[in-house]
Amino acid sequence: MTSAPPPAREDRDQRERDGGLGTAALALGLLAVGTCWLGWPGLVLGLLGVVVGFIGSRRAFHDRHRSGAMSLSGFVLSLIGLIVGAWLVVPGLLGIGTFGEGLTLDECMAQAQGQQEERMCASQHLDEYRARYGDPGGTGG
Rank of each mutant, 00 (worst) to 15 (best):
G92Q: 07
D135S: 12
G19R: 14
G114H: 08
A4E: 15
L105K: 08
L30V: 14
L77I: 02
C121D: 08
A60P: 13
L47E: 04
V89L: 09
H62T: 02
P6C: 11
Q124S: 15
V50Y: 03
G138C: 10
Q116Y: 05
T23H: 04
D127H: 12
L94F: 04
G92A: 05
R59S: 04
V50Q: 03
P7T: 14
E10I: 11
E128W: 06
T2K: 15
C108M: 07
Q116M: 07
S123R: 15
Q113A: 13
C121M: 13
A25H: 00
L103G: 03
D135M: 10
Q113I: 04
A60F: 01
P7S: 15
G95Y: 07
Y129Q: 11
A122V: 07
D106V: 04
L93D: 10
A32Y: 08
L26C: 07
S71F: 01
A122L: 09
W37P: 08
D13C: 11
V51F: 13
D18F: 01
E10K: 15
G56I: 00
R58W: 05
I80D: 02
L43C: 06
P91Y: 06
I80W: 04
L38D: 13
C121L: 06
D11N: 14
P91Q: 04
G19A: 13
A122G: 13
G138F: 05
C36V: 06
G46M: 03
E10Y: 11
L103V: 00
V52G: 00
V33L: 02
P136N: 08
I55M: 09
G22M: 03
Q111W: 01
E107Y: 04
T2F: 12
V76H: 01
L105A: 05
S3W: 14
Q14C: 09
V52P: 00
